[in-house]
Design a protein around this nucleic acid. Structure first.
Length: 274
DNA sequence: CCCGTGCCCTGGCGGC
DNA sequence: TGCCGCCAGGGCACGG
């Protein structure tokens, strides 16, 4: 569920709280979430400082003095930051990772345990590492001609194409439906039938929708009270997602829900054409 | 290579 | 009312 705007919202709130903190202790509760290293490898972070909080598409990057962690929230991953003296639920069974610093206790929590964590050395640049190097540019800085070329080659539904992070990054199931609605394209229109004008509009609308969503601190569908930075208000701007059976704001016909590429898909049959 | 499917995981909820 | 079973979701492995 966290897509580019939600991850950016988390990034900003972490940036305000934990930059320059020095790591005192680190504890990994669920081994499987850490994919490319072992639990003891994380101890290298002790005594390092948090230099920056970065992001590429839906990946959050916590950069330390000598290493960085790439974290993907997947559906339910969330951060909590407590002050040293705050009351903390030590029996939080959904806690994946706990980082104690000189100022804060940072808890990464994921009740569905889909989130991923990878540890890299700063010797490997973001561009070089095997996770981020595979990801295409975000709508903000994508090459339209290249994107058009890639889409044209695919005999696949445009929704599935736009969810492919190696083609364009940052869109997930909610915003892709919104982008296709605002672009008046049917989610099952095939890539081969997409025009250059369509691609231009898709990118333009993605940027607009992302900017508004970031301003609203993201979309919160299922709200939990204390999740850091993800109590957004953008849900009130959604025009199709979760609106099955309700009236289209543009043409007053009924919003439909179908399954595209295994994902629940909301759209207006009247406004969006193949 | 290209594309579709199923799996990972667990809380929530639809349906009987 | 109670409880079982299935769905949600991003990304990746795998098979045709």
């Amino acid at each position: 569920m966290p897509e580019l705007p939600e991850v950016e919202t988390v990034r900003r709130s972490l940036e305000n709280k934990i930059i320059n903190d020095k790591v005192k202790n680190i504890k990994l509760q669920y081994l499987k979430n850490l994919r490319n290293s072992s639990k003891s490898d994380l101890e290298v972070l002790i005594n390092q400082e948090i230099i920056s909080i970065d992001r590429k598409a839906k990946h959050l990057i916590i950069k330390f003095t000598n290493n960085y962690l790439i974290i993907h929230l997947r559906m339910e991953g969330r951060f909590y930051v407590y002050k040293i003296n705050d009351q903390i639920d030590l029996n939080d069974k959904h806690m994946i990772l706990k980082i104690e610093t000189n100022n804060n206790i940072i808890i990464f929590n994921d009740f569905r345990r889909f989130a991923t964590i990878d540890l890299f050395s700063n010797d490997i640049t973001y561009e070089e590492n095997d996770i981020l190097s595979k990801i295409a540019n975000e709508p903000f800085d994508i090459d339209i001609d290249l994107l058009f070329k890639k889409i044209k080659k695919k005999n696949v539904n445009i929704k599935t194409i736009l969810l492919d992070q190696t083609i364009i990054s940052g869109l997930g199931n909610i915003y892709v439906d919104e982008v296709l609605f605002s672009t008046k394209i049917h989610p099952e229109k095939k890539g081969v039938n997409i025009t250059k004008k369509d691609v231009n509009e898709i990118v333009k609308n993605s940027i607009n929708i992302f900017n508004i969503a970031i301003k609203n601190k993201g979309t919160t569908i299922k709200s939990f009270t204390s999740q850091l930075g993800v109590k957004g208000t953008n849900q009130s701007n959604l025009k199709v997602h979760q609106r099955k059976g309700e009236k289209c704001y543009d043409c007053n016909s009924t919003i439909t829900k179908i399954v595209v590429g295994g994902r629940g898909t909301f759209f207006c049959e009247n406004c969006q054409s193949k």
